[in-house]
Amino acid sequence: MVEPIVAGWLPGTVASATRMTPHGRILELQVPSWPGNLPGQHLDLRLTAEDGYQAVRSYSVASFGAGTSIELAVEEVADGEVSPYLVDDVQPGDQLEVRGPIGNYFVWRDSQTDPVQLIAGGSGSVPLVSIARAHQRSKSTTGCRFIYSVRTPADALYADELMGLVSSTFTLDWVYTRQAPPESPRKPGRIDRSIIETTAFTPAEKPMVYVCGPTSFVEAVAGILVDLGHDPMRIKTERFGGV
């Protein structure tokens, strides 16, 4: 499997840009010299203005494995500089550069045999979708469970694809913080101990847990997991934003 290599900046072209949510788009980039990536890794993306001005941001990769096509899902950050360009402006054929893949810790390898617990808040779903896809592809017989917290059903990236993965070895549970669909078993609200207790693998099942989302979400979820008895060394976190 691919090991992380961080070469120099690699030129890429936007192959497609698809709006998935009111504030988010999925971008497919064609990067001829991309070395491939493990599920869960991220990359740096560099934009250069015509006068030479540059800006760089990190994004998780939704795709995995070998291949020169990279899928990113970008959610617009209020007051952002790069994300509004990627969500509103960039078009197929536009050029940019990437560097990566980066990170060797928040990854899932198909040699792992433990149950996989994924817990996402908002656009923190992107690296976890990558892991869910890879887990599915691996035909692993151990289970994978995904808890996905979003503001409203319309804000869910990859909703249809994830629902299509549901099987005897893959469960998907939604947490809606602002507005839930009528069929939802729970009223809107933040993720809490009872949701995790009733839908996640138990500590006794020794899952490897991946939590990704805004800092406050990850802090809350990781704290609950530790309280429930999960081994802190088996909880991998990735946070974005401040507290």
Partner: peptide
């Protein structure tokens, strides 16, 4: 490699910023 139309929302540069960094008022984790 140029990214068409990028750069409208650029932030002021600051000589105290190392290369490739951007300013935040937040305190990310």
């Amino acid at each position: 490699v140029f990214s068409r139309g990028f750069g409208d929302r650029r932030r002021e540069s600051d000589p105290k910023l190392p290369p490739g960094q951007y300013l935040t008022e937040d305190f990310p984790v």
